[in-house]
Write a protein that binds this DNA or RNA. Structure first.
Lengths: 134, 134
DNA sequence: TTATTGTATTACAATATTATAATATTCTTG
DNA sequence: CAAGAATATTATAATATTGTAATACAATAA
């Protein structure tokens, strides 16, 4: 009976679950934006951006209004950013504890892998800044 | 350069984005559980449950330990539940405002659709109760 | 050891998602 | 109205995800 609710939640999550769509949403964190900005800033094909926006719109995650020939998009629910922030936190924790494991077990041998994680961690911290949920 | 971070986030979200996996996680909200419980309670094929658990495990969303021939799973990051709760909130808001629109515009004609949403809303409220994030 | 129980893995067909390319639509300007 | 700019839609081929069925593996019991 409640199966449809789980389907709804899954559909919502699926709409968020794409690198380009997350990037689009992050760009909408500060303010509403024209489609042309996404194409430009994110370096994506026009039709690709349109399709990704359609996915987000279908789930009512974003809404749009026309302004001349331009279309301006905005995020409907600020909770979306909290969700993204929460994921940041989890990933940060994960990479951090993975790092600790590598640090304590092998010092020099896997140095390459450690550095790789270091950059990921730095990136995560950076991404955390705008609207940190912690 | 930071493209991989968005990919990581997308992968994380993708792991959550399936009705059965969400159901599994909701079952893990209260306490850790044996695989056999999922098969039984969620009425899913054994191999299907195993595959879904593998997806969650790959993202380090859950971890497991053996106990005899059984395997017990638990959720690693409580933030996962906060994410699910947040989605509940958003969906609840969405259905609610959709309802309001239908109510004010047409009273009898689309009655069927209204009732449909009503049941969804009731279900959402129910699902909100266990660990409401609002 | 063999048999049994509980999980995991693999194979595979069906379906869904994706990026690209081509076309269509909408709005503005002339 | 025609032309151009911005966006949306459609078609399609490549890839990914999914559920089922079959098989493999691990722990215990006999």
């Amino acid at each position: 009976m409640e199966e449809r609710l789980y389907q709804m939640k899954a559909d919502f999550l699926k709409a968020l679950a794409h690198p380009s769509r997350i990037r689009i949403l992050e760009h909408l964190r500060a303010e509403e934006r024209c489609v042309c900005r996404f194409i430009e800033d994110l370096d994506l094909e026009q039709s690709n951006v349109s399709q990704h926006l359609a996915v987000l719109k279908k789930q009512e995650i974003v809404s749009s209004r026309k302004e001349g020939t331009n279309v301006i998009y905005k995020v409907n629910h600020p909770e979306v950013f909290e969700i993204l922030d929460m994921i940041n936190e989890v990933l940060y924790t994960q990479v951090n504890s993975a790092m600790d494991l590598l640090k304590t077990s092998k010092k020099t041998e896997k140095g390459e892998r450690v550095n790789e994680n270091k950059s990921i961690r730095a990136g995560l911290r950076q991404l955390c800044e705008p609207g940190s949920a912690g």
